[in-house]
Write a protein that binds this DNA or RNA. Structure first.
Length: 107
DNA sequence: AAGGTGACTAACA
DNA sequence: ATGTTAGCCACCT
């Protein structure tokens, strides 16, 4: 089946602890594809809604929520993060997370 | 088979 | 500092 890399990506995303966030590039690197940030984005894009993958914990390198207006509004991702204890600042319709405090740092 | 797209980044101007 | 360009690589048409 195709999407072997996707399964790997999903596995990494599931490792993100509650209350922390990770960047696309970070997940890509953990999967052995240091330049595969876009692939991660695509992988999350095709996640089924009923999956147990904490996709909301993945944001871009700037600490902003990147989800464009697709299936899920950004506000949903913000709400999910807030409910996990992550502080999200709202700036001009954009949602920002303080990476210095909430970025996941795997060993 | 070939070119376009994207929930990305980093480097430049 | 903000805006643009170029790499990136799997998926889609």
């Amino acid at each position: 089946m195709t999407g072997n890399l996707y399964q790997k990506i999903y596995a990494c995303v599931r490792k993100i602890p509650r209350g922390k966030v990770a960047t696309y590039g970070q997940i890509a690197a953990l999967c052995g594809s240091p330049r595969g940030a876009r692939i991660v984005g695509y992988a999350l894009h095709v996640i089924p809604e009923n999956s147990n993958i904490p996709w909301q914990r993945v944001i871009n390198s700037q600490g902003f929520i990147s989800t464009s207006c697709l299936g899920h509004p950004k506000s949903l991702q913000r709400d999910l993060l807030i409910s996990e204890g992550v502080k999200v600042e709202t700036k001009n319709d954009l949602y920002n997370i303080d990476l210095n405090n909430y970025l996941w740092q795997p060993k």
